[in-house]
Amino acid sequence: MTATARRPKDTAQSDLQLRMLRQMLLIRRFEEKAAEAYALGKIGGFCHLYIGQEAVGVGALAALRDDDYVICSYREHGQALIKGISANAVMAELFGKATGCSKGKGGSMHLFDATRGFMGGHGIVGGHIPLGAGLAFASKYRGTDQVTVCFFGEAAVNIGAFHETLNMASVWKLPVIFLCENNRYGMGTAFERVAAVTDIVEHACSYDMAAELVDGMNVLTVYEATRRAVERARKQSHPTLLEVRTYRYMGHSMSDPLHGVYRTKDEVEEQKARDPIAHLAGKLKDEGVIDEAALDAMDSGVHAEVEEAVKFADESPDPEPGELFTDVLVD
């Protein structure tokens, strides 16, 4: 029996889910390659991988329009890829090359593509949360119905900028979604060790804001919750706080250990058993939307795309020396 013969009636739904599966696979394979390239010294500085959290970025971005804004912390390779920046341009940026999406000046933490509404990669924990509200302020001011999604980690919730921004976003009814990716650890510190309120979603009460607690290991759950928040933002211009519970398999950055003093190997393995990619692939196989051969073909395609990105980045030129002094100010 072929896969297509058993496909459910709602082909739009299965097409969407297949697309999300491919996107999660692309991020996973991209990040695995980035880790390899980092080990080879081709990528420098800090490099924060998204492996384990793919369902969050993919599910949330599936609920957006192309002209909506996305702004992220420094763990943003995944969202950049899904917002439409090519794997070539992202990998080249990680390699610091002139063909990178920020011309080799930003690196892993500062990916940008203004034409696609991908407004960065920002490196100071919580510092970009007000920027997300500011983008939403601009959309509302100009009378567009664009929505902004601002991704940040749970550790940013302890920063003043988070609270100041949620307050103003609620007072001014800004069309923004504060999407907290709760991966449990700020670098090596478990959230419950440093937070009086560990259910982040409860912070929304302080700011009279809609909120939802979401399973971040299930891409469809993330998609549906984000869709509700997007609707609220686009139609009513109301902000939402989403707490999306997820898990990062890798260390905080490439220079940090996977486990050890702050979490056990068993815990990491236990979480991997809830893998969002395996979960969706299994579901789609059960439903007959995809079979093993088609899944393999999808993975091969993704592999090829990532291999090509590495080749492109490797062969791309460094920025010209004169680039050092450009882009400091607009003329």
């Binding site: 007000p130 997300g132 601009a138 100041e164």
Partner: peptide
């Protein structure tokens, strides 16, 4: 003419975001 709460970090950042959004 937008009155803000006493939250310099927050409204300065919202201003930066608004400039990113074309204002």
């Amino acid at each position: 003419i937008v009155d803000t709460p006493i939250a310099e970090l927050g409204f300065a950042g919202i201003g930066v975001g608004a400039a990113m959004g074309g204002l």
